[in-house]
Write a protein that binds this DNA or RNA. Structure first.
Ligand SMILES: [Mn+2]
Ligand SMILES: [Mn+2]
Ligand SMILES: [Zn+2]
Ligand SMILES: [Zn+2]
Lengths: 154, 154
DNA sequence: GCCACTAATGCGACAAGTTGCAGCAGAGAT
DNA sequence: ATCTCTGCTGCAACTTGTCGCATTAGTGGC
């Protein structure tokens, strides 16, 4: 079991993934629009976590005319394509992960607010148990465990 | 390991808990207001899960002048007192549990939308591992595991 | 019953999304 | 280049909360 330090996920984004987005959309009969180009450009230079609101903000830097609903709808599409994945922070707010980052969940202390990444190996037992006994397939990226860290328990 | 069926948590609410709320507030120098009486009355006849918005709605049935921020702030106080606990649904929306219901988390299939309760025994391994190795104390009521159920995996 | 202390309410503004709908515009066909 | 089909955008309204601030009103003490 290993927990990486306070929320600093790295992992170089594969440029080929971004080049293929247009084709992946076309293959499904979907379109490659200016608004989508902006969001994909933003995602291409994003590592680790981003909230939906942050992505909207970053898109606005490139195109001030950016409309939130368009960004959120495009994120839904990209999630379908398996290019991003979202979870929810301890407050329920959206948190996006840009793939092919290693998929992980989060551990959050509600007392001090610290966050740690929860790797696949940390939850192996739970994932296997749910699968074996109920056929349930866990989406690790959507897992946020809230509680209290050692320091805050005194 | 046992999963109760689709989201129908029962568990009789202990009336003594409700009678004691007033005193528990006073002990902390907090006040027993008409607005709080309404929310506590609503909670007293609530079983299983409720979203924050639903609670606001039910309070409005008793007192149409109910203000959302007051309800949410009172819920925070009651959570401090250990009378309710909240988690977040798969969409991040708040979900309240009225104690002394058995504390549990949730399992949610993002394909068909079904929800199952996740009992303490289901996550024993994870809880113990995080505690032993990192001193992290999991708040089970705040755990929502998202993924795909057996039926939806085909 | 009246005072003083301060917790709690009401209200308005704001944040983060979501949804329906009319009109716009990609993409392939001709 | 133009046409057509339909996916996508922009917009506006709405949902679910959150926050700061002036005002109100519980409470305990007198
Ligand atoms: Mn929460
Ligand atoms: Mn979600
Ligand atoms: Zn902590
Ligand atoms: Zn399902």
């Amino acid at each position: 079991m290993s927990l990486s330090g306070p929320s600093v996920s790295a992992g170089p984004a594969d440029p080929l993934v971004w080049d293929s987005v247009r084709d992946r959309l076309h293959d499904r009969g979907l379109r490659w629009t200016p608004q989508r180009r902006v969001l994909v450009a933003v995602l291409a230079e994003t590592r680790g976590h981003v909230t939906g609101a942050e992505l909207v903000e970053r898109c606005r830097e490139r195109d001030p005319a950016t409309i939130p609903s368009t960004v959120y709808r495009t994120l839904d599409v990209l999630e379908d394509l398996g290019i991003v994945r979202h979870g929810h922070g301890p407050d329920g707010r959206e948190e996006y992960h840009v793939l092919p980052d290693a998929i992980h969940g989060h551990l959050h202390c509600k007392a001090c607010g610290s966050t740690w990444e929860l790797e696949a190996t940390d939850v192996t037992a739970l994932v296997r148990a749910l699968d074996d006994e109920h056929g349930f397939e866990v989406d690790l990226s959507h897992v946020t465990i809230v509680g209290r860290c050692r320091r805050c328990r005194d």
